[in-house]
Design a binder for these strands. Structure first.
Length: 434
RNA sequence: GGCCCUAUCGUCUAACGGUUAGGACAGAAGCUUCUCAAGCUUUAAAUCCGGGUUCGAUUCCCGGUAGGGUCACCA
């Protein structure tokens, strides 16, 4: 019987949750869910100066918003597990695998703990890269603890992974060369070696490692821009992995069902905001009107009229864009005010004929029963007249009369949304203003 | 620079020795059209280079080249 899969997502709380971190957490989650295992969240905060509670909270909030499930480890902070590490440091020193050295950089006289490098060759198996070999000699006797009480990253991570029974370490490619140090420590401590999987990095358009200077990195920023979790997760999952089919749209559950490490790429992938935008629009379109309205509510200043929801969904790629459209192109549901000159398309149309067209349109609509006031029927009735008189000459002023905007959905849709009474009122007012 | 890793359209990628090298995003053109979007159709675009192995290489091997990662008392 196969051993239970145990993975972990161990960010250091020294910054906000960013795109790269999310992708690492996501791959860990997908692998874990696919195999029915457990993924622990813990915080690597041995760097007391840089670690902040604020970042820890941001990471937790971010994972919650994204909907990536995890199990919080017992005593999740390394800073609170010092007593766990101390015996190991003592043992390493006692057994000759480490020693105290008089060469503290910051505080003269203080002793750091160095690992006694056996200068061996380490070969480990990587689920994505296959066999990787290092000659550890060049590492020298590297420092594993600030002093006998305060471990550094390499020591702490090895002990934590062992204590938690981690079976698979899935992390960024930037950790491959760290693996040799960690394996050396594992062997000195007699721990079993977990399976490693180093996933490719996410790159900026210039192929360098993605960083702040390349724009938004924190997922909070993407959230504020109106991206939704479903799209972010779907896009990120397909950066460096794919199931081998042409399918691109996935739910988290579907991804977990398909995900395997052997289909993860070896090369880094460039982050493309345009494709993310496309995924966002696709996932936005899949939302129910109710759900869409709820999410849009976080961005819109006023209540979202359910009638415009389908129209908004069809055109906006982000919730922020939808919120803007709500007050701009879709602002016609509330009171409108506009310069009457707009009715004449900036002077291209004649006031008299335009006024006549508006009255004629009103005449055509007057006797239409309320229940026939739909976009389709309105178009059927007005189209022949508009075609006969010149569509631009009839439809432009009609649309402006109804929307008050230079840009908006077509007049039939607007009139239907406004209803017969309001539509006729606006047309009459426009005709009068000319 | 040492060590490690990587290499298919501009970008994300499919192909696991035999395909007209496929799809998606972005681009271009067209359709639609009163405006702005959306939508639909069409189209251009790639196996880094050089050697091998093989009847046959995108695919396997070697060498270049290019790119990335890493060389802390950070993680």
């Amino acid at each position: 019987m196969a051993q239970t899969v145990i993975t972990r997502f161990p960010p250091s709380p020294t910054g906000f949750l960013h795109i790269g971190g999310v992708r690492t957490a996501l791959f860990n989650y997908l692998f874990t869910a696919h195999n029915g295992g457990v993924m622990y969240l813990r915080f690597e905060d041995t760097d007391k100066e840089r670690s902040k509670k604020e970042f820890e909270d941001d990471i937790v909030a971010g994972l919650a918003w994204l909907g990536i499930p995890y199990t919080l480890a017992d005593n999740p902070r390394q800073s609170e597990r010092l007593s766990v590490y101390q015996p190991y440091v003592a043992r390493l020193i006692k057994e000759g695998h480490a020693y105290e050295a008089e060469e503290s950089e910051n505080t003269p006289g203080k002793k750091v703990v160095r690992f006694k490098n056996p200068n061996s060759s380490i070969t480990f198996h990587d689920a994505i890269r296959g066999s990787v070999t290092f000659d550890t000699t060049e590492l020298g006797d590297f420092v594993i603890a600030r002093n006998t009480d305060e471990p550094l990253y390499h020591l702490a991570v090895v002990i934590d992974d062992h204590d938690m029974g981690v079976t698979h370490i899935i992390r960024g490619e930037d950790h491959v060369s760290n693996t040799q140090r960690q394996i050396l420590i594992q062997e000195a401590l007699g721990f079993v070696r977990p399976e490693y999987a180093h996933i490719p990095l996410i790159l900026a358009p210039d192929k360098s490692k993605l960083s702040k200077r390349h724009g938004a990195l924190s997922i909070n920023e993407y959230r504020a821009q109106g991206f939704i979790a479903e799209a972010l997760l779907n896009y990120l999952a397909l950066l460096g992995w794919n199931p081998g089919t042409n399918q691109e749209l996935y739910t988290l559950e579907e991804l977990a069902k398909e995900f395997t490490l052997d289909r993860v790429h070896k090369a880094g992938a460039v982050f493309d905001i345009h494709k993310l935008l496309w995924f966002n629009h696709e996932h936005l379109k899949k939302l129910s009107d109710t759900e869409y309205a709820t999410r849009l509510g976080e961005f819109a200043k006023k209540d979202v009229d359910p009638r415009v929801l389908p129209l908004l969904k069809a055109r906006a790629q982000t919730l922020a864009e939808a919120a803007t459209a709500l007050t701009e192109e879709f602002g016609f549901l509330g009171d409108i005010s506009y310069d009457p000159a707009l009715l004449l398309q900036g002077g291209k149309l004649q006031a008299e004929s335009t006024s006549n067209h508006l009255r004629a349109v009103a005449g055509l609509l007057e006797h239409l029963p309320d229940e026939s006031f739909t976009a389709e029927q309105l178009k059927d009735i007005l189209w022949p007249y508009a075609t006969d008189q010149g569509r631009g000459a009839v439809l432009w002023p009609l649309r402006v009369a109804l929307s008050g905007k230079e840009k908006s959905p077509d007049p039939f849709v607007i009139a239907a949304l406004l209803g017969k009474t309001e539509a006729l009122l606006r047309i009459a007012r426009a005709a009068k203003n000319l």
